[in-house]
Amino acid sequence: MTALLAIEHLSIAFGGLQVLQDLSFTVPKGQATALIGPNGAGKTTVFNLVSGVYRPTGGRILLAGQDITALPSRRRIRHGIARSFQNVRLMDHLSVVENLLVGQHATTRGLRDLLVPFRLVPNHRWRREAIDALAEAGLAAYADAGVGALPYGIRKRIDLVRATLAGASLLMLDEPAAGLNPTETNALRDHLALLRRRGVTLLVVEHDMQFVGEVCEHVVVLDFGQKLAEGTLAQVQRDERVRAAYLGQAA
């Protein structure tokens, strides 16, 4: 099985605090990989390193065999890396569809696309594509709402839809099910299944083990910035160290 994303000996320290230490794991192409671990294990830091918000103090990040460690953050989405955010980072000054239009940026080309007054054209292709993506997630009714007024679960799902619009091959989701009610979680699971059928590879940080078991075939366990175990959920759940650090306390 080929790896879409390979993390090799990745380390990062903030001041004296070593957040990740010599972390290596791979994300198989076409699969869903979960990144789990207790709070503070470094899961979101991995996302921030892969998306380029932070620079590692050591190690490499390879996407489809290409070293992207030094690639500026804004270039990474065009290489196929998109993400959602744990604390939902929608632009509150924009409407839902406007947020999605920003999410489409990586599919546009050059100065012409930047400066064409496309919003004079009724039902322009860009707007249509954004609304289609919303409709797939069952959220079309919210297209022209301001994001500030929407409930948390809806905002969370829109954050995910926005991440899908760049046509990325790797989608990193930071706690996509957190704060969702059971109906919304079911809708999320269906949405992720649809993305999987399109060949999108998922890397998911999630605390809901039932959700992880249903969505992810591959699980990587982090604790204190180091890899504790790797395998299927059933395999890592049997691991003594994992039970001690994480699942044992949760069970």
Binding site: S51, V53, R74, I77, R78, R89, H105, A106, R162
Partner: peptide, 11 residues
């Protein structure tokens, strides 16, 4: 609204 996220969107 959010320069960090706008950057991550490739802008």
């Amino acid at each position: 609204s959010d320069p960090v996220v706008t950057d991550l969107m490739g802008v």
